[in-house]
């Protein structure tokens, strides 16, 4: 049973109503994570590499997952920022063995949290401390401290270690995300409408 299967099931939402963005610096493991999700859903994948910024998209059981590379390409910034408006959850992937770039991860995270399309929304953020199998990998506690995650007050967040190659830890994170997207949607105005919609059925 795929992870996303229960995600869509639990939410009982209309198809293509939900988007999860997978963000992170280049080489953090986003593609590997997305591929893992794909495998577990045995769905034909749609890969959409667009000009300039790498984007992988796949659609399954009513959930669209989009991976966006926040690599140096500054000029495509506004392009990927347009996706913020329509997403319901964010997975932020961090290479926990690349300590040198934590400062960039932190800077990007701050920009993300302050983005007008995300700032006042109750969007759950899941952090994967990926590549936990690497020798230099930092624990998720240390990552949370280095990135100052305790300062995120207005959004639910969760961090867990993962190994995208073996799939270890991915499930735990997704379960958390599913729950919190559900809470968020039920609480919001949108959620109320959705509920009515599913009752009518």
């Amino acid at each position: 049973m795929g992870m996303l299967h229960n995600l869509a099931d639990l939410l009982k939402i209309k198809k293509d109503k939900m988007t999860i963005l997978v963000l992170g610096l280049n080489n953090s493991g986003k593609s590997t994570i997305v591929n893992h999700f794909k495998k577990s859903n045995e769905q034909s994948a749609i890969m959409v590499p667009t000009v300039g910024f790498e984007q992988q998209q796949f659609y399954s059981m009513g959930v669209t997952i989009k991976a966006i590379d926040m690599s140096g390409a500054t000029r495509y910034r506004n392009l990927w920022e347009t996706r913020f408006k329509t997403c319901q959850g964010i997975i932020y992937v961090i290479d926990s063995s690349d300590y040198m770039r934590f400062v960039v991860v932190k800077d990007e995270l701050e920009a993300l949290l302050q983005h007008p399309d995300l700032m006042n929304r109750n969007i759950p953020i899941l952090f994967y401390g990926n590549k936990s199998d690497c020798e230099d990998a930092l624990s998720s506690v240390k990552i949370a401290a280095a990135l100052g995650l305790e300062n995120i007050k207005e959004k639910p967040w969760h961090i867990c270690s993962s190994n995208a190659v073996s799939g270890e830890g991915l499930e735990e994170g997704v379960q958390w995300l599913v729950q919190h997207i559900r809470y968020a949607m039920l609480n919001s105005h949108d959620g109320a409408k959705l509920k009515a919609h599913s009752k009518n059925k």
């Binding site: 610096l25 280049n26 140096g72 290479d95 040198m100 770039r101 960039v104």
Partner: peptide, 14 residues
């Protein structure tokens, strides 16, 4: 500063 170097280091370009 006595020495400087610039370029791609690790996975970061600048």
């Amino acid at each position: 500063v006595a020495a400087m170097l610039y370029g791609r280091m690790g996975m970061e370009d600048h």
